[in-house]
Design a protein around this nucleic acid. Structure first.
Lengths: 159, 159
DNA sequence: GTTTATGCAAAGGCTTTGCATTTCA
DNA sequence: TGAAATGCAAAGCCTTTGCATAAAC
């Protein structure tokens, strides 16, 4: 649950973005933004749809997909493909920079932080001229629990 | 084009893997492995299918998907989801460790190396007990050329 | 001779699209 | 009022699955 100041902040950012690009400020768009910032962790479109439906807020999946594109464009959400079929989303503001550990046995996704990734970004920019906007570092393997159970990976290791 | 010694090596590795797991050594499986190791860079299933078809080697897409799963399991290929719909593959052996820059303007994917990523892996393992098997670091942004053209991103920025 | 793999086509699942209706500006 | 967004359902696309046929072992 994001603090109120954050919610107000992202609403303002979204509002400004919509204005700047000549998009309409529909209630659906802000309802989706609010729902996204009301929860921690990852979610896919289907979960978001279910959550809003559960609150008796009717939005179509099409609008969810469209709005997520807008939120991606203005950097209010981030999109991941950890290996499953569906894309995973997470809010991008008011959330410390972090990366992901993906357990290929139990499929759980956890987070970690390491400041050195920033140095890598800086060096790469400097050397190649590539302007890094954002990054994703995924470490695949076995979480401590699965490693202790000595399980073998339950699916092809990839992505 | 991988050197002959590499090709022989991966064939042996694949052969051993198949034996160890009670899988059959079909000509299709080795033909696919060979095709994969004959090219540099990324490819998706469709490209692989087209390439083999172009050489008059008939394999079904189903077999391609199945075989890629086997090759993933024995670490002879790596799988990526850079943001497009289809998964991208690349050979994993005889190829220096590298990560990827994805230009969100022109969609081009280039490679870079940074040894610090290994230190991050080590630290995370140590601290969390997560056994890192492999990783993927994706830097999203604009390549030098697109940045110079001062283009705006052509699609929602995201994984 | 069994059992596993291949190939084809159909099914599946996530995402996008088309179009009528609604609604923001 | 006019243009853009929503919602629904249908279409698309990549991938998986089922089943008959072929081929390892």
């Amino acid at each position: 649950m994001a603090p109120t100041e954050t919610k107000d902040n992202v609403k303002r950012l979204f509002s400004e973005y919509l204005e700047r690009h000549g998009h309409r400020k529909t209630p659906e768009r802000f309802a989706i933004l609010t729902e996204v910032y009301d929860h921690e962790g990852h979610f896919d479109i289907e979960r978001l749809y279910a959550r809003m439906k559960g609150k008796n807020y009717r939005v179509s999946r099409a609008t969810l997909y469209n709005t997520m594109d807008l939120l991606l464009e203005c950097d209010l959400v981030r999109k991941h493909r950890f290996g499953q079929a569906q894309a995973q989303f997470e809010k991008a503001h008011s959330y410390k920079q972090h990366d992901h550990l993906i357990c290929t046995s139990c499929e759980r996704v956890t987070e970690f932080c390491d400041p050195r990734i920033q140095s890598i970004r800086a060096t790469v920019s400097e050397v190649t001229g590539f302007r890094v906007h954002h990054h994703a570092l995924h470490l695949y393997g076995q979480c401590r629990e699965c490693a202790e159970k000595n399980q073998t990976p339950s699916r092809p290791i990839g992505t």
